[in-house]
């Protein structure tokens, strides 16, 4: 029998009617349309589905959505504010903390949960915390570097993704206006 539940996802209340056997992962992806959270192993090992529930990092593939009634859920989609990337997201770009990117939302959510709890972890503490988030591409060296860059304030203060803002200025040109001859 379907149940009515209310979840707060990235600060927004979501009222849903779901079967009790629905997993948080699938409800986020299929009912709410937040596909940033990924399914990798389906048994809580790989961490691709990591989200934060009431401040705790969990595997959404092993969490019943029905059990999350009234809870506060953070997913990768909630990190960037007003188009500005979260420092971790920025660091992952600057330091190459991903390749294929399928594990990246989980990696970033795991790192966020760590930094929320301990803003100044050592590299060993990061390794211990993050080792439950598997990555098959990077060998983890650049993931660690990315997280430590945030810890040590080594991200660029004037970061822009591929100079988007300057692009916006260029795009504001009226491209249909005839080009003035150089004479």
């Amino acid at each position: 029998m379907k149940r009515k539940i209310t979840l707060t996802v990235n600060g927004k209340e979501q009222e849903l009617e779901i079967e009790p056997n629905r997993l948080l992962l699938h409800v986020l992806r299929e009912e709410i349309g937040l596909t940033g959270t990924k399914e990798g192993c389906s048994i809580g090992v790989c961490g691709a589905c990591s989200v934060i529930v009431d401040g705790r990092l969990v595997s959404s593939c092993l969490t019943l959505a029905a059990g999350c009634e009234g809870r506060d859920i953070e997913t990768i989609e909630g990190l960037a504010k007003d188009g500005n990337l979260h420092p971790l997201q920025q660091a992952f770009i600057e330091y190459g903390g991903f390749q294929c990117g399928i594990c990246t939302p989980g990696q970033i959510m795991a790192a966020k949960a760590l930094l929320d709890e301990n803003p100044k972890p050592t590299a060993d503490e990061v390794k211990e915390w993050m080792s439950g988030n598997l990555c098959r591409c990077t060998g983890y060296y650049k993931i660690l570097e990315s997280v430590m860059a945030v810890v040590n304030n080594k991200i660029s203060p004037d970061f822009q993704f591929r100079k988007r803002e300057q692009q916006a200025k260029i795009q504001s040109l009226d491209v249909y206006k005839p080009v003035a001859k150089t004479d």
Binding site: R29, L34, T35, G36, T37, K38, E39, T75, I76, E77, L79, A80, L85, Q89, Q90, F92, I93, E94, G96, F98, G101, I102, T104, P105, I108, F161, R162
Partner: peptide, 17 residues
């Protein structure tokens, strides 16, 4: 910067699933 960086760190990249 990677050309697909933004989409990948925000979860916006569309994988097959």
């Amino acid at each position: 910067q990677r050309v697909d960086g933004f989409d990948k760190v925000t979860g916006e990249s569309k994988y097959i699933a």
